[in-house]
Design a protein around this nucleic acid. Structure first.
Length: 423
RNA sequence: GGAAAGUUGCCAGAGUGGUCGAAUGGGACGGUCUCGAAAACCGUUGUACGGGUAACUGUACCGAGGGUUCGAAUCCCUCACUUUCCGCCA
């Protein structure tokens, strides 16, 4: 969430910038400013009352020690009223703080100046693109047909075991998954990321830390008996490593990478958008996360985008990078670049990565701070990106590389798969 | 799953009702000494919010939440977690 300080000190600017995210902020911001004013007044009053009470208590202690019991009891009388006042004031203060927090979590992150205006995905700006569009042979098949033809993925079997959206990968299909995961992790390590293996279920505090809770509660699977949530992305456990942490400035940037299975309930979509591998309840992804100094976070964002570009290039997929417009960006992001690869048989672009700078928005909830060389403590900036999500990469690989002889595996991946063609 | 013991600052660890934001030791940082280093000595070393231009100052925080009391790190209750032993187990 945004910091109270920033909102109260830059109120008009906050409202203007949020308009780019198509968020009408004037009312809620006015409420925040008003509540904050009340909060400050209440705290001052409460602190004064507590201060008096502390002084009286000390006095009573001294009097008892000196054996002046009667005088002590007289002072005790005075505390009765004060106690009541303290109770009321602190209750009011707590209530105001809760109200403020409720409002703050409803305010999205401020978009970066470079974010284009717009409402929908069509308003996103193509940043750059590359790769060669494949010429498919006669009778080219979409990936779900290819998966069946070569016995790589069994969607029906997944339905039997779990339900729709839980495919079973078999044989070379399973080996391709494993190859991609290892390839992505090795690449990330070479790019300076520390590999971590996080838990796949998290507690509610972690869900709040990265912003899945409370707003996106319905998107996560919830194991209610133990009150744990299945992670929708490794971003959640990995970023939460740094919850309630004060780092040293010279530890920055922190660069972590993690593979995890990801679980998403994703209710409400149907049709060709969700055919085959396009949208799943369980999928594999390698994630990259950075914790960075505020002055350098946009350098890191550029670096992460370039890094993801090298991955799609090594996989020889036609790709493009979109700068998301205000209306298509996530609630928590300040600037997001999406990667899409061309799915030749479906003849559509598939989103395979989303790389974002959250600035201090996420760090504020996480309480992820660093102590600078000037001894001041301030919030870090957090960034993350998929590098990459597997299913749509697999879809594009299968479709784009189909030939009469079988499906060709890109050269960079062959050392990982152990085969160069699926036939 | 059963039993017991714990949870205090960067770390170790003392503190069982008042002057305790908290002894002591270690670490880190700064200084003295030194050609330099070590040793020794001296000093500094939490977070959040409020007031103040500032120096500074008020309040809260000793796992979390509640209670008792004029006053709680300290007493009581609930919960979470950790460790050890037993059971079960990849």
């Amino acid at each position: 969430m945004l910091t109270l300080k920033y909102i109260t000190e830059n109120t008009p600017e906050v409202i203007t910038r949020l308009a780019k995210k198509n968020f009408r902020a004037d009312e809620i911001i006015a409420q925040v400013v008003e509540l904050d004013k009340q909060r400050k007044q209440t705290q001052t009053a409460a602190d004064n009352a507590l201060s008096q009470s502390n002084a009286l208590s000390k006095e009573i202690g001294m009097l008892f020690k000196q054996g002046k019991t009667e005088e002590a009891n007289a002072v005790k009388e005075k505390t009765v009223e004060l106690k009541e006042a303290i109770r009321e004031l602190t209750e009011k203060q707590t209530s105001l703080e809760l109200q403020l927090n409720d409002l703050l979590v409803q305010i999205p992150n401020l978009p970066h100046d470079s974010v284009p205006a717009g409402k929908h995905a069509e308003d996103n700006v193509i940043e750059r693109s590359g790769g060669v569009m494949p010429q498919l042979p006669e009778g080219a098949l979409p990936h779900w047909e290819l998966a069946k033809k070569y016995d790589l993925i069994d969607f029906e079997l997944g339905v039997k075991i779990s339900g729709a959206g839980f495919p079973v990968y078999k044989g070379n299909g399973a080996r391709l998954q494993r190859a991609l995961i290892n390839f992505f992790l090795d690449q990330a390590r070479e790019a300076g990321y520390l590999e971590v293996q996080p838990p796949y279920v998290v507690n509610a505090a972690s869900g709040y830390g990265t912003g899945q809770l409370p707003d996106k509660e319905g998107q996560m699977y919830h194991a209610t008996v133990d009150d744990l949530y299945l992670i929708p992305t490794a971003e959640v456990p990995v970023t939460n490593i740094y919850r309630d942490v004060i780092l040293n400035e010279n530890e920055l940037p922190i660069k972590n990478t993690a593979y995890s299975a990801c679980f998403r309930r994703e209710a409400g979509s149907y049709g060709k958008d969700v055919r085959g591998l396009n949208r799943l309840h369980q999928f594999d992804k390698v994630e990259i996360v950075q914790i960075q100094h505020p002055e350098k976070s946009y350098e890191s964002l550029t670096e992460m985008v370039s890094y993801v570009q090298t991955l799609v290039e090594k996989l020889e997929l036609p790709w493009r990078i979109l700068r998301l417009c205000g209306g298509d960006m996530s609630f928590t992001s300040a600037l997001t670049f999406d990667f899409e690869v061309w799915s030749a048989a479906q003849e559509r672009w598939l989103e395979v990565s989303s790389v974002s700078n959250f600035e201090s928005y996420q760090a504020n909830r996480l309480k992820c701070r660093f102590k600078g060389n000037d001894k001041k403590t301030q919030l870090c900036h957090t960034l993350n990106g998929s590098a990459l999500a597997l299913p749509r990469i697999v879809a594009a690989l299968l479709e784009n590389n189909q030939t009469p002889e079988g499906i060709k595996i890109p050269a960079a991946l062959v050392p990982y798969t152990g085969f160069d063609v699926i036939s």
